[in-house]
Design a binder for these strands. Structure first.
Lengths: 125, 125
DNA sequence: CTTATCTTGACAACACCATTGTCATGGTTT
DNA sequence: AAACCATGACAATGGTGTTGTCAAGATAAG
């Protein structure tokens, strides 16, 4: 217990540099910078301007990858969905997964496929 | 029993053939057929298989036009947004509009009641 | 110091998508 | 008969997503 009081395990703590983050989400570092330019993810920076991604950032990117690759949504659509979620203050995206897994075996929750232990990109383990 | 609410003014009543509907939303009839193929709109059909669009269909198409043209969302994104809205059973898309109007005390969603002849949820045209 | 990795910015290739448009053949409406 | 609709096919245009590279400079770690 008391894991919630350990900042070194905080999901918001920035830890991964861009090359590691890119590996975690099976994307090119170039792609991650584009996501940032598009305002879809905002990794922290070291005092010397180096990007550091947190676990939350990774999960957010995995959502982007799922929406774009599995559902064919473009970045503008992802931005709209994120904006909607923030505006409603709810995890509305989870509703998409309930449908995907229950409706039919169309979209299994497995966006990553390069040995990533994380099979669930939904924010909220 | 019949016509208790003047069905001739029901927003769900199919009235417009495709050429008229296309004019109303400033799109090509070809585009409207694509929307239907993509499952984004489902106009009624006459017994002889002619498409007839209702006011609700028109408004739905205007949402598609707004999302695609003004926000750059692709059809897959529109489908996801519609799916999310249907799954949550709320008019979540209206939350996107508050951003454009910047009005906090916007008119509350009033489902089921189409008392106003024109709610005009469509983008400024 | 040397090496590897990071930064921004630009350029580009590849495949895919949205929209409009046309053509053809045939059914429907007026 | 004329005008419209249905389906299906084909294509052109412009845009997007992703990856990739090259450059020049800053930073981290050996």
């Amino acid at each position: 217990m008391s894991a919630a009081r350990r900042p070194d395990r905080d999901a918001t703590r920035p830890v991964y540099v861009i090359s590691v983050a890119a590996t975690l989400v099976s994307a090119h570092p170039r792609t991650l910078r584009i996501y940032e330019d598009e305002g879809l993810v905002c990794p922290a920076r070291t005092p010397t301007n180096i990007r550091l991604y947190s676990e939350e950032d990774i999960r957010r990117i995995l959502w982007i990858r799922h929406l774009t690759r599995d559902r064919g949504v473009n970045l503008a659509g992802v931005r709209t969905l994120f904006e909607l979620e923030e505006r409603l203050g709810k995890r509305i995206l989870e509703a998409l997964y309930d449908e995907g897994t229950r409706g039919r075996g169309e979209a299994p929750p497995e966006p990553g496929s390069t040995g990533t232990p994380d099979g669930d990109p939904s924010p909220g383990r």
